[in-house]
Structures are given as structure tokens and as C-alpha cells.
């Protein structure tokens, strides 16, 4: 199989912030092929931000390996961009000075035009002080810094939370345009999967610090079916979640055999149903599709 290069690969990745504290991430193994737009989804506290910070080289994992753009996160620093959840910026600088900072700190990789298009899209002036910006405007400037640095991998931690619908549409468009033009891999975290529907073609679902689902969204959807019927048992299929429905039952299953001929209605679940079912049932086995499974662990060892 001709596999695309991996933008991010993790094997047995674990992280805890201090001895004696609980693991924020444990035994995470997954692979993100290059060029994908990946939704990193999970409830609050699932470890999304920690995973992004690890990939950005801001933290050092306590266990396991992580490779980004084929190398260590530290060595991939010039090739990735990251926007933290709280959009840290220097409040004493103007917007123009903030972009200048991006230019100075990314020599040879800076695209001033791209940065200005994003920053000044909605009437923001270069002379505006960062401390006086609204939440949405801060997001704009933070994204401008990230897009100005022509990165191969964009790591965005809940980037759209502060944005009004118009800005959200416009900035998502800008993001997608960058991805279309340069083949950038994008990881966007969110706790609302619906927000990313249609934007993402890859899903990484985290629950309680573990990977629950990883893979191409179409592949993941194809691997699951909603069965509704009055039959007592769902046969050879792996049941992720089931609940009573009238006189019968409805179940989200991973088909383990032929679905036709069974005494039930077969439907394709939505991405949101898939995500919610897996989060409600931590006992259900995790599923990684083929292109989301790393090669053997030794091969990705740093």
C-alpha cells in the first residue's frame, strides 16, 4: 500500500504533569497522514490541548514517542505553527508589531501578505494595540501569526471558539485555502464535532486521555452501522452502544459479518452520533483505520 507520509505519529505516548498526578494522556498510538484536515475531538479534559502542546514541542512527553513531520517535535519547530487555546499575544504591542515579531522570528519562512490578509480582514487596523482587541480579534491576530509562518503542519487549539459566524466562515475559508494551496496538514481541536463537519476529513477522538477513534472520517463512518430491530441479539457485530427503542433496540455496531438479511433496519450513523456513542461508552474498543495506524512501533521510535 502506498502510504502518504505521516504528519504526526505517536506510539505509546503518555503525559502527566507531575509525579503522583494522573496521566493526562496515556498509551496514545495513532498516525495522521500528511495533507489531512484533522478534527481532534474530545470532551473537556480529554487531553486535546496537551496532545497539541506535545506535538508543538512545548512539552516533553513522560512516556512513548512522538514524531512530527518525520522528526522530533523540537526539530520540526520551524515547520509547524501552533495557536494555543487562550491565544497568547503581547498586549503592549500593536497588531503591526505583532506581525513584525512573526517576521523577525521566522526568517525565510514568513509570508507577510498571507498574515495581513488574515489579520486585517475585518477592519482591524495595524496600529491597534493588542490589549484593546476583542476575543475574536485576538484570534484573528493569533491565526495571522500562524498562517504567516508558512508551516507544513498547523496545530490549532479550539481556534474558532471566540469568533462570530461571519469571521468563523471567513477564517475557516482562509485556513482551507492555505491547505488547498500548500498541502498543509491541519489539526483543529474542538469539543463540538458538528463545528468541524464538512471541514475535516480525518478524525482523532480522545476520551479520558486515550485514543478512541482515529482515521479518515469516511472510513470511520463506513466501519459503523446503526441497527434497529426487534431481534434480541446483534449477532457477530461489535456493539459500541445499544439502547431500547420502542419494542426493539437500536445499536451502533461495527459490522462483523453480513448485515443484509438480518431482521433490522440498517442506517449509516452521522459523525456526531459516532463520537457521542464512543464517549458515552468508554468500554467500547478503540478503532484505528489502516492509515491511522502507525507502522510497527520500533519504526517510529525516535
Amino acid at each position: 500500500m502506498n502510504r502518504q507520509e505521516a504528519a504526526v505519529e505517536a506510539a505509546g505516548l503518555g503525559m502527566r504533569y507531575a509525579w503522583g498526578r494522573d496521566h493526562v494522556l496515556r498509551d496514545c498510538t495513532f498516525r495522521l497522514p500528511a495533507g489531512r484536515i484533522c478534527a481532534l475531538v474530545g470532551p473537556n479534559g480529554a487531553g486535546k490541548s496537551t496532545l497539541l502542546a506535545l506535538a508543538a514541542g512545548l512539552l516533553r512527553p513522560t512516556e512513548g514517542q512522538l514524531r512530527v513531520c518525520g522528526t522530533t517535535p523540537g526539530a520540526a519547530r520551524t515547520r509547524l505553527a501552533y495557536v494555543a487555546q487562550d491565544k497568547p499575544l503581547h498586549p503592549q504591542l500593536t497588531v503591526a508589531a505583532t506581525l513584525r515579531l512573526g517576521a523577525e522570528l521566522n526568517p525565510g519562512r514568513w509570508d507577510q501578505d498571507a498574515a495581513e490578509r488574515v489579520a486585517f480582514g475585518s477592519g482591524l487596523t495595524p496600529g491597534a494595540r493588542v490589549r484593546a482587541l476583542s476575543g475574536g480579534q485576538r484570534t484573528r491576530v493569533a491565526l495571522a501569526l500562524a498562517l504567516g509562518k508558512r508551516a507544513e503542519l498547523l496545530l490549532l487549539d479550539e481556534p474558532m471558539a471566540d469568533l462570530d459566524p461571519l469571521s468563523r466562515h471567513e477564517l475557516t475559508g482562509a485556513l482551507m485555502a492555505t491547505a488547498a494551496e500548500h498541502g498543509t496538514t491541519v489539526v483543529i481541536s474542538s469539543h463540538v464535532v458538528a463545528e468541524l463537519d464538512g471541514v475535516c476529513d480525518h478524525l482523532l477522538l480522545l476520551g479520558q486521555g486515550r485514543v478512541r477513534l482515529a482515521g479518515d472520517t469516511d472510513d470511520l463512518l463506513a466501519a459503523h452501522r446503526l441497527l434497529t430491530g426487534t431481534g434480541a441479539d446483534f449477532g457477530p457485530h461489535t456493539v459500541v452502544e445499544e439502547h431500547p427503542n420502542g419494542r426493539g433496540r437500536t445499536a451502533l455496531v461495527r459490522p462483523g459479518g453480513a448485515l443484509e438479511g438480518g431482521d433490522w433496519l440498517v442506517e449509516e450513523p452521522t459523525l456526531e452520533e459516532l463520537v457521542l456513542a464512543h464517549l458515552r461508552n468508554p468500554g467500547a474498543p478503540a478503532l484505528l483505520t489502516a492509515d491511522a495506524t502507525p507502522a510497527r512501533r520500533e519504526e517510529i521510535a525516535v
Binding site: A56, P88, G102
Partner: peptide, 14 residues
């Protein structure tokens, strides 16, 4: 505290 150190570290600066 503000996270602006991390802002520098995700530019091309170790």
C-alpha cells in the same frame, strides 16, 4: 504566565 513564551517557541525559535 501569559503563554507568550510558548508563542516564541512555536515560531522558529528553540
Amino acid at each position: 504566565e501569559r503563554g507568550t513564551a510558548a508563542l516564541a517557541w512555536v515560531q522558529s525559535v528553540t
